[in-house]
Amino acid sequence: MNKKLDLFKNISLWPVVIYSFVLILLPLLYILFLSFCETDYVGGINYHFSIVNYLTIIDSTYLLIFAKSALIGIITTLICLVIAYPFAIFLMDKKEEVRNALIKLVMIPFLTNSLIRTYGWIVLLRKNGIINNGLTSLNIIKEPLSLMYNNIGIIIGMVYTLLPFMILPVYAAVNKLDPNLIKAAKDLGANKFHVFKDIIFKETISGAFNGSLMVFIPAIGYFFISDILGGGKQMIIGNLIKDQFLTARNWPFGSAISIFLIIVTFLLVRVYKKIGGNIDELGGM
């Protein structure tokens, strides 16, 4: 090997190796370390080994928040699935150009600021907002509905923000299906439900799981949505971590929750791989 060959290798590899050690591995190891420390009342960190933070996680108060957060994540994911599947299947009837244009149209809103879009929902959902005023003036409802500052508000916000992450992989998977297969099944007399269950869903399950991961994982961490649409009382794990770092001055406890989240994430990815998912397709838009 001559020197020139090594130069290209070095230039292409050293930056990424340094990057992955300094900006990924080191931060994660450091919070792992922090999670075994303790803190005094002004947030100073006492560097002596303790598992108190992991014991606190099992405290009923926090377990309740985890359960609620997971529930919000699961409901959000299911709603996204229920919207994305028919959307992708119905799109199949269209010509390719129309399909591509419509998928671009799905993307446009997400190229604008996500916070301001969430804010748009406040204007729509509040007690004297557009939806409630519209419904009352049409005499559909008498009393305004509670659409935000509760779990409903958070779920609407999450579904809205995360829907494209479900639509894109599901659409990609459905797009790959062999239309002849579906036609054959229909010709053989399979009803729609069976066609969906036995063919479409079976063939696209890894796409659906990919989407579900990309929806569920952010949904337990997006504190800004529960902050804006939940009225500050509906805590999800994201708020809990944020509070530990930015108000309760308890970095070690916040780190412990983060480590817990990382473990959950890894387990989910493992399931995804088991059912035949390709890790390279995660997060791809």
């Binding site: 919070i31 990382i262 995660l282």
Partner: peptide, 24 residues
């Protein structure tokens, strides 16, 4: 190992990367 590390920022919740970077 490096390849595995590179997947982490894509899959873990953003908030975890955020607080980890802040800590470092």
């Amino acid at each position: 190992f490096v390849n595995k590390l590179l997947y982490i920022p894509i899959i873990i919740p953003e908030i975890v990367l955020g607080i980890a970077l802040l800590s470092v």
